[in-house]
Computed example of a mutant assay.
Amino acid sequence: MRLPPLIAVRFFEATARHASVRRAAEELHVTPGAVSQQVRKLEDFLGCALFERQPRGLALTAAGREYQTACAEGLAVIGHATTRLVSTRRRQVVVVSCTPGFAVQWLVPRLHGFLQQHPDMDVHVGSTNRAVDLAAEGVHFAVRHGQGRYAGLQSEVLVADDLVPVCSPRLLAPRRTARVADITSARLLHDEHRGDWRLWCEAHGVAGVDCEGGVVFAHSNAAIEAAVAGRGFALVRRALVQQELEARELVSVHCKPLATPLAYHLVYRPEALIDPALRRFHAWIVAQGSAGQSSLSI
């Protein structure tokens, strides 16, 4: 049995179905030039033209119409067989790297919904503050805190709300309202972004507070846990403590939030979205970020 180059067959079938090189390229996530090259390769192999190149587009030749029918049927059979084997033998895995605080406070609480929607997929979360090499370490997506400039990588803003001081209501008893005057040096809870309290004090004209005072934690989730326990004030993004605020485990200080040029960004290699499973996760996590910002603005 003599078989043609199967990748060329796939590119031809998509081009014939769309009657367009450009639309086939969009479906296959390659360039139009790559599609044209594979179609010409198949025509050379078969020794006949499959398309008539017309001024307004492509039209199948008689041989092309006959061959398209056979190719579509063959690819459908292969596709169904592949789906059955893959679904029974392995699960699709998405590898995500993020800081420990972001993992605990934002990502993991939301993941249950994604996994319910996609029971054939697993998400592996690696928590670290160091910069990871996505290609070398097999990481599909990273969430990083910064200005979003990463050479050779795609970057999208995920969480960008302003910073607010929060504390436990127990720290305020018998009052229930947190005031700027309640914040003292000894009550400061710092996370890995230690300079945030200094910026907040400067923005609000707060004097007499030693911004180096208080307790320093390696991760923001530890600072938030300390605030819930009534140990002091943590300066955090509201999106990371939305559940605690709704449950009244934390209350925010009545003051203007601190705007910052930094944000949590979703970072990935441009070719990552070729994979349908990774595209599903990307669409989900971006939607979660947008929904969170919308709920905070209400």
Rank of each mutant, 00 (worst) to 15 (best):
R170Q: 12
H204Y: 02
Y150L: 01
E156D: 05
H118M: 03
R10V: 15
V86T: 06
A160F: 10
R144K: 07
L50E: 08
I224W: 09
S295M: 03
H145I: 03
A49D: 14
N221E: 04
P55H: 04
L245N: 08
Q288S: 02
A24I: 08
Q242E: 13
K256S: 14
Y67I: 09
A178N: 08
G195Y: 06
S252Y: 04
R91G: 00
E246D: 15
A72D: 03
R110S: 14
V94P: 03
L245C: 10
D210I: 01
H282E: 04
V104R: 12
D44W: 11
A186Q: 14
A8K: 08
R279A: 12
H145Q: 04
G101F: 07
A186K: 14
L296Q: 11
S297A: 14
V77T: 05
V206C: 13
R149M: 01
R187K: 13
Q293I: 06
L245T: 11
F51T: 12
H18Y: 14
D162N: 12
I78L: 15
D120E: 10
F233E: 06
A24F: 11
L60I: 11
E27W: 08
V30Y: 09
T31D: 05
A25H: 14
L296G: 10
E244M: 14
L172V: 00
V125L: 00
A239W: 02
A229D: 14
N221S: 05
D44R: 15
D210Y: 03
I274T: 15
S97T: 00
I224K: 02
P169C: 09
S185P: 07
S185R: 04
D122H: 00
C98E: 07
E52H: 11
H112N: 02
K256P: 06
S290E: 13
A103D: 06
F12W: 11
A239Q: 12
L245W: 07
W200P: 05
P257A: 02
R53E: 15
A259W: 05
L58Q: 07
V30S: 11
R2M: 07
R40N: 13
V236W: 06
S290D: 00
C201M: 14
S97W: 02
I7M: 08
R89I: 11
R198C: 03
V21G: 01
R22P: 02
W284T: 09
L58G: 03
H282V: 05
V96K: 00
F102V: 01
G214T: 12
Q243Y: 07
T61H: 12
R22D: 06
H118Q: 10
Q243R: 15
A203I: 13
G213C: 10
R187M: 15
G213M: 13
R130T: 06
V236H: 12
L85N: 02
I183F: 08
P55A: 03
A136Y: 01
E26T: 08
L163I: 03
D120I: 10
R170S: 15
Q288H: 00
G230K: 14
Q147P: 06
S220T: 15
T83L: 08
G74K: 03
V253A: 10
C98F: 04
L273Q: 04
E13H: 05
L278W: 00
A19L: 10
F45C: 07
G289F: 03
V159L: 15
A272L: 13
P270T: 06
L266C: 04
